[in-house]
Simulated assay, not measured.
Amino acid sequence: MAEVDPGSTAHTLLVATTRKRDDRPGTLFNGERATPLDFARVVVSVPEKHTEGQVEWASSPPGNSKTDFVVRQAGYLDGERAFVATLNAQLAAKPKGKRNVFLFIHGYNTMFAEGLYRFAQVVHDSRAPGVPVLFTWASRGQLTQYVYDNNSATAARDDLERTIRLIFASNAEQVNIMAHSMGNWVTVEALRQIRISGGLSEKSKLGRLVLAAPDIDTDVFKSQMRRFGKPEKPFFIVLSKDDKALGASNFIAGGSSRLGAATDTEELAALGAIVVDMTEVKGLDASNHGKFAQLAAVAPRLTAVLEGGVTTSHAAAHGEDIANGSLEAIVKLPITIIGAPFKLLAGR
């Protein structure tokens, strides 16, 4: 483990995974599949001079907590009971009304450390108040392993369903879920299974559902939504029409459009989504596939505006609107923090 810099910030993440344990020092889990569902607790340190939207990777292990994301503590948890007990202890440390869970499901081409650090970055930048829980499925973290990853995500559906049920049965007051890329496939499938099997006994605990750059066939998603019906609470689809990774996925899928690069945003809004179109945002990665991580920096202010209700069908960037407090004003924030506007679209 790395030495602790007093200026860094620690975040305790709980982990549920279908990955195989790895005995190599500092690795915890690799990219191979394993059963049963496994658990861990990891404390990640974010450096004081962290740049929003980015992960500061160490040039060599264990890293320097003054300049890099590093792991302060890590250990396995012994099964479901230990996971739930640890989760409830984390929740009990928060005041009533703030005992929330933030569940994140990563995407394709993601090794364990990559998913862990990306989630820590999103938690840190968004100042998310909930207990962070990472569900990490067995991705090999290689561009050439798309089929393996897709099958791993599919195989993880039952385990993600189980994880969601464990979290909802905990002492959490609200559960917010975010999935990225191929992680959306396993997430929507798990939620579909829950719906088919009779739902959740504590479904009122469901807060925000964010589908970021979803690598899902658009027609498949529409069929899934027909099973769900229009949700009681709007969910979010974060998309970018210049997402090159989804362009490659579209090619592999024989030209079938991917939800995260959809052009018919009006139709998505009609399904019950609030569409966050980040096409005009300059991405920090060459593929434009990780823009959701940049959205985290404005999440607290965006959330405050959205909680007031989306009352217009379109919201676009107009700097002068910042003064009147309208929904359009929130788009001023990415101009300052990210460098470009995004658009919001909500169904009527």
Rank of each mutant, 00 (worst) to 15 (best):
L211E: 13
P300H: 02
E80Q: 14
G75R: 13
L259W: 00
Y148H: 11
F83E: 15
L209R: 09
A153F: 02
A74V: 15
K343T: 09
G7D: 00
F119N: 08
P25W: 00
T187C: 05
I274T: 12
T12L: 01
K205H: 06
R21F: 08
N64F: 10
E56W: 10
L77H: 09
A262R: 02
G254R: 07
T136P: 00
D158R: 05
D158M: 09
M182G: 11
Q294C: 12
F29M: 10
G107V: 01
R140A: 08
E267T: 02
D321W: 06
K203C: 09
P334Q: 05
D78T: 15
S8P: 02
F29E: 06
E232S: 12
E56R: 13
L160D: 01
H124Q: 10
V70I: 15
R348T: 08
A58G: 11
A169C: 06
G107Q: 02
D215F: 02
V123W: 12
A323S: 14
N250F: 00
D22M: 11
A156L: 07
G229M: 04
N100D: 12
R165D: 04
H106L: 04
I237Y: 03
L116D: 04
L259Q: 00
V175E: 01
Q121R: 03
G63L: 07
G130W: 00
I337W: 05
I252K: 12
S126T: 05
G31N: 08
P300E: 02
R72V: 15
T336V: 07
D321I: 06
Q73W: 14
T187S: 05
L268V: 07
R227G: 14
L246A: 02
G283I: 11
Q193C: 08
A212T: 11
V331R: 13
L246Y: 01
